[in-house]
Design a protein around this nucleic acid. Structure first.
Lengths: 232, 232
DNA sequence: CGGACAATTGAAGCCGGTCAAAACTGGTGG
DNA sequence: CCACCAGTTTTGACCGGCTTCAATTGTCCG
């Protein structure tokens, strides 16, 4: 149960999509774009804005979120290197349904709408793979909704730490847990709670030897215990 | 704000998808299928099952849900007549990520996987429209996540009643609110609470003259008040 | 009429949100 | 090198909404 859930949740989408295409349409697409460096905390696109292209994240991490009525933000996805952003809205034809901002220094390639749509129009195989990825992406959202609705804050934090560990591991392979570098506010907005409560639960996990905290960055040291805590 | 949110949330997806195609690929597709009658409460497909086709709901209502760790169910979408189901998993290639069950007597056409995929392969225009619909569908999920995370039970109930009103209105046009026929348990699982709490809030709304309850079926009689309650 | 299930009401307890304040951090300039 | 300041993290106390458990009423059908 956990295995399938986690593999669904952390599947590196863009890489799956372009597996086998990397030498053809994919590289053409990336090369049709312009690459820019972003500092931590910069906004890539804004909810309500008009999409003019899609983004390829070659380095760094990006949070995707919506603003809440009370002024806070609800993060529902963290992008890692190798993933695409913004294609939902380009496909849908409306405005951006969410905002995207870097949470670490990043490198992002902007690919104009036309290049993306042309690739779709000219390559049925590319399109098929893309649709497959979209189909799988829905699973992530369904899981996210079910998780948020069902589990307690403690369980949600455990689940999200396991997911984030996978997300942050990609940059540096190691046997130990990855360094999860994230502000308390951001992590709280991922888990769906307030930062005060998050800190408490984090402290509890630390006291039980599930995680380690250095300089604010979190590291899993007892994956099994965390999985049990998540009661998946 | 409300307007855009509601129109996003209740957009009759399947009809949008096939607008303009209804005389061609769409009807061919439906005719390639077999239509069955379902009684209220029957399961159409199960989480974890292997998809062999997609479904077209020509009459009735269907809930899409996931089972929770504690044995309950979390409903994240109600399908009305004219909508398609099951295409996420057919596209993604994996197993069903959720379950679908009728919540009223329904009529459902099963369309074999091959027919669906062939239509996609043979009609780029059909594919393009379909992808557009998928892009828009992501907006629904993002809204659902943000809503669940941010709003209180009262607000969520108000929002969902407004959405369900649209959903149930289609069967019978009228100026008044539609009759929302739904078990308390199902409604609680949509809103994301327990039935006891749901009943209480429902009673509160009734006492304030926002809704009317006949024989268990709910009818909105003060839309404006409900919108204010939803504080969208 | 009666049995099973759904809906409703009541009471108690806890999780988690809110408010307030202290400790810590990193960056800046004297 | 240290003092200072702004922002972030952490801790503490309080309170209220929601869940949970339990019991009663209502409703549908055989």
């Amino acid at each position: 149960m956990l295995i399938s859930f986690l593999s669904d949740s952390v599947r590196p989408q863009a890489e799956e999509i372009f597996k086998g295409l990397k030498n053809q349409e994919f590289h053409k697409l990336i090369q049709a774009g312009v690459t820019h460096k972003y500092k931590k905390g910069e906004i890539v696109f804004r909810e309500g804005g008009i999409p003019s292209g899609i983004y390829y994240l070659s380095k760094g991490h990006i949070k995707k979120y919506k603003f809440t009525s009370s002024g806070g933000e609800q993060i529902f996805y963290i992008c890692g290197a190798g993933e695409l952003l913004g294609y939902h809205s380009v496909l849908g034809g409306g405005v951006y349904a969410d905002s995207a901002a870097t949470i670490s220094d990043s490198e992002i390639t902007f690919i104009p709408k036309e290049a993306f749509l042309n690739t779709l129009a000219s390559s049925p195989e590319f399109t098929l793979r893309f649709m497959k990825a979209l189909g799988n992406e829905f699973t992530l959202f369904k899981n996210a909704i079910a998780t948020r609705a069902t589990y307690s804050v403690k369980e949600r934090l455990a689940i999200n730490l396991l997911i984030l560990d996978e997300k942050f591991k990609k940059s540096k392979r190691s046997a130990n847990g990855a360094l999860i570098i994230l502000s308390r506010t951001d992590l709280a907005n991922i888990v769906g709670t307030v930062k005060e409560n998050l800190v408490r639960v984090l402290g509890e996990f630390k006291a039980k030897g599930l995680i380690k905290i250095n300089n604010g960055s979190i590291q899993i040291i007892n994956r099994g215990g965390l999985i049990k805590r998540a009661s998946l």
